[in-house]
Design a protein around this nucleic acid. Structure first.
Length: 136
DNA sequence: GTTCTGACA
DNA sequence: TGTCAGAA
């Protein structure tokens, strides 16, 4: 199938399908015209890509993970021994990222709660009366 | 009309 | 990721 049909089948925008290919996640056959020709397997691959992206994996890792998983309904099952270890590392990276964000939020909380009176005044001054003639 | 590549927001 | 331009 060509691009238009692939977009319909996957629900993924044409621009993204090209991006996945550019990242080495897809390798559709090419016609002499240069047009891409996708297979049924490619449709399934796109579903896996979406799943892994949602899981927060970077495209570079997805490219390595893709040949090491099989689909079981809407679940992905690892088929390579090294893969699980790699995914564990990725999980640790995400855990670390969460910790950093929580720290950032904590600092902001301190700043926000330190001057509630200023926030109240600012709110009062920031809402001047709108002339009726200019109101939408 | 459909798809391609490249570039920019 | 979304969108547009210019070419085939």
């Amino acid at each position: 199938m060509r691009m238009k049909e692939m977009v319909r089948r996957t629900g993924v925008h044409e621009r993204l399908l090209r991006y996945y290919e550019q990242q080495g996640l897809l390798a559709p056959r090419r016609l002499s015209s240069g047009y891409r020709v996708y297979s049924e397997a490619d449709v399934e691959t796109v579903r896996r890509i979406r799943c892994l992206l949602t899981a927060g994996l970077p495209t570079a890792l997805i490219a390595r993970v893709l040949p090491c998983v099989r689909s079981d309904g809407d679940r992905l099952v690892p088929t390579c021994p090294d893969l699980v270890a790699e995914l564990r590392r990725e999980r640790e990276r995400i855990t670390a990222a969460i910790a950093e964000l929580e720290t950032s939020r904590g600092i902001l909380d301190d700043v926000i709660t330190a001057a509630p009176h200023l926030l109240a005044e600012e709110r009062h001054e920031a809402v001047p009366a709108v002339p009726a003639a200019h109101a939408a």
